[in-house]
Design a protein around this nucleic acid. Structure first.
Length: 595
RNA sequence: GGGGCGGUAGUUCAAUUGGUUAGAGCACCGGCCUGUCACGCCGGAAGUUGCGGGUUCGAGUCCCGUCCGCCCCGCCA
């Protein structure tokens, strides 16, 4: 660069600079060489500007510009000139001007890019990830990571304004019972022992409350060694917070303020307070999901009662076995022909594990076409008509199964078909609290387990039910859901070691087990734990929502593939035998295919 | 662990029923071009058809195995 320094970022050069000299630096987006005159679109983190090289302005620069290729790094010094009306480019933010080069300096050459640095290059995911540097040069990813940055800053500003203290907790930690598989880190100093990377700082933030910090937050990396999805990575970031001497409403108040503030500061969107609230039971009943997008104007109907005494064995048996019969009615569904229904049936059976997809179509004359309706009594038909509001043009989909699977299948159909058929209201943002989760749920083997995590405090008046009807115990848990994406969840925690012990007991922990695993927690609570509660936002998912993208990889600088690999750095890899030696580790022979 | 889709040039795709030397756009390289902005024109180079095996006179194409990417179920909040 010599002594020359940037005077303007590329996108910042404007008509106000016409006639003055500017120095711009960046990467060559594209070169158009007309022999006599050469145009270069120069790109930096912030925009594009056209630089013109004319032999009569600077023969040397023109000569050098001929050598320049895509993605070369250059510095150009020149005079800003207003373009003639016929050469203005209305598609470009800086399209009214151009920089007439007086001098160009080649700062670095570049290998040809593996794909064009365009907004939508139509490239395979693995290619994008192997060439992540090039991928990150593209404007959409630059924008997404900028949104991510704004979210960090907004969250910090807002929480600091509410007297939250940012405190770090260890990455080399101990396994905590979030329920996911831990990432383990072998200890050299304690051979044969392992740290666990935190699945969340849950217990540590509770300890901070006991220690009297009153309000804590942290933007913190978390690790869960489970199979990945479009919205799940092995490592992800939480905006974690916890408060002392609060009830549910106090926490929700902070969550509303934080959410509203972030939307306003990061993308300039005004979200109305208070947020809509829906109970877990309502959400499951009406939408089949605990994170519904309520803009989709389709709702489920529970017909279990209508089939409790049914002669239709397929439904009756499910109800007898404790399952449910549920229906997704879609009115004016003429658009969905027989072929579409067949495809849906194939889809739910193969991909969602449904047993089948029963359906009833109501013809224009009111007649029912359906493979199952011949088994129904008049009373059952009447109940269906009444509860689903079936009418000519309606198409009813049924699932008879255990509640979670039936709801899962119909919930998926609801969102897919709702979007496909345009049954969506016009609100761009659907923000809600989901509340009133139960503390426990029944496992397949009949035992009880926690719905979220084992430290959720029960609603106070339900504590006596722990001894008698634990399944009815309501928790203080709450979720924030935006546009059908669960942004995060939280609860009040048990600050009484007695209640905490009883909950672990209901979940089947013996006194000894509970003591050995959670003794330090009991001790901490007994050291004078204040009532406390908190929340954790999934930061990556929040960026997804703010940036309006549907994949976490587009909001993380260096994401991993579905199989957990980093294709850029090529991790994970084998390590040197000496490293294993030092850790006193030996690899077992491969267990697959008999080694 | 399971289901679905995919893997051919740097890249995005094509290749009839299994049949000639695996083609095209963009990118790349060379040449020409003074107002383009997806510049244009002419020419060129570029391939272990993911990998391994099999069937066949002959395999990108059929069979078996395996690896990789994406989406989903299980798993995970």
């Amino acid at each position: 660069m010599g002594s020359l320094r940037r005077s303007h970022t590329c996108g910042a050069v404007s008509t106000a600079d016409v006639g003055s000299e500017v120095i711009v630096v960046g990467w060559v987006q594209r070169r158009r060489d007309h022999g006599g005159v050469i145009f270069i679109d120069l790109r930096d983190h912030q925009g594009l500007v056209q630089v013109v090289f004319r032999p009569e302005e600077s023969a040397e620069s023109h000569e050098r510009a001929g050598e320049i290729r895509s993605e070369y790094v250059i510095l150009a010094r020149g005079i800003v000139q207003r373009r003639t009306p016929d050469t203005v480019n209305p598609k470009m933010a800086t399209g009214e001007i151009e920089v007439v080069a007086q001098e160009v300096r080649l700062l670095n050459r570049a290998t040809p890019p593996p794909f064009p640095m365009e907004d939508n290059p139509d490239v395979d995911e693995s290619t994008r990830m192997r060439y992540r540097i090039h991928d990150l040069r593209r404007a959409p990813l630059q924008r997404n990571l900028r949104i991510r940055h704004e979210l960090y800053q907004a969250a910090r500003r807002i929480l600091c304004g509410r007297d939250f203290l940012e405190i770090e907790t260890p990455m080399l930690a101990k396994s905590t019972p979030e329920g996911a598989r831990d990432f383990l880190v072998p200890s050299r100093l304690q051979p044969g022992e392992f740290y666990a990377l935190p699945q969340s700082p849950q217990l540590m933030k509770q300890l901070l409350m006991v220690a009297g910090f009153d309000r804590y937050f942290q933007i913190v990396r978390c690790f869960r060694d489970e199979d990945q999805r479009a919205d799940r990575q092995l490592e992800f970031t939480q905006i974690d917070l916890e408060m002392s001497f609060v009830g549910v409403e106090d926490v929700l108040d902070v969550l509303e303020e934080l959410t509203v503030g972030v939307f306003a500061e990061v993308i300039g969107v005004e979200i109305q307070r208070p947020f809509a609230r829906i109970s877990y039971a309502d959400a499951m009943a009406r939408f089949g999901s605990d994170r519904p997008d309520t803009r989709i104007q389709l709702e489920l109907v529970d017909l279990s009662e209508a089939f409790r005494e049914s002669g239709f064995r397929a439904f009756r048996a499910v109800v007898d076995a404790g399952g449910i019969v549920k229906c997704l009615p879609i009115h004016d569904a003429q658009e969905l022909g027989r072929g579409a229904v067949d495809r849906l049936e194939k889809f739910v059976k193969k991909e969602l594990g449904a047993k089948g997809l029963a359906w009833i179509r109501v013809g224009e004359d009111g007649s029912w076409q359906s493979p199952i309706v011949k088994f129904f009594s008049d009373a059952e038909r009447a109940a269906i008509t009444q509860q689903t509001d079936a009418r000519p043009g309606s198409l009813l989909f049924f699932q008879a199964d255990q509640a979670d699977r039936a709801n899962g299948v119909l919930s998926r159909l609801r969102t897919d078909l709702g979007r496909q058929l345009g049954r969506v209201d016009d609100r761009p943002w659907d923000v809600l609290f989901v509340v009133d989760f139960p503390v426990f749920q029944r496992e397949e083997d009949g035992g009880l387990t926690y719905v979220h995590q084992p430290f959720v405090a029960p609603v106070e008046e339900d504590i006596p039910l722990l001894a008698t009807e634990p399944e009815k115990v309501r928790g203080t848990h709450y979720d924030v859901v935006v546009n059908g994406v669960e942004l995060g969840s939280g609860s009040l925690r048990n600050h009484s070691s007695d209640v905490q012990r009883r909950i672990l007991e209901v979940m089947g922990y013996s006194k000894e087990e509970a003591e050995s695993r959670f003794g330090f927690l009991f001790n901490a609570l007994d050291a004078g734990a204040p009532p406390h509660g908190g929340f954790a936002f999934g930061l990556d998912r929040w960026v997804m929502v703010l940036a309006n993208v549907d994949n976490l990889r587009d909001v993380i600088a260096f994401p991993k593939t579905q199989r957990g690999q980093d294709l850029l750095m090529d991790a994970p890899t084998v390590v040197e035998p000496e490293q294993l030696e030092e850790l006193q580790l030996r690899l077992a022979p491969p267990s697959k295919r008999g080694g």
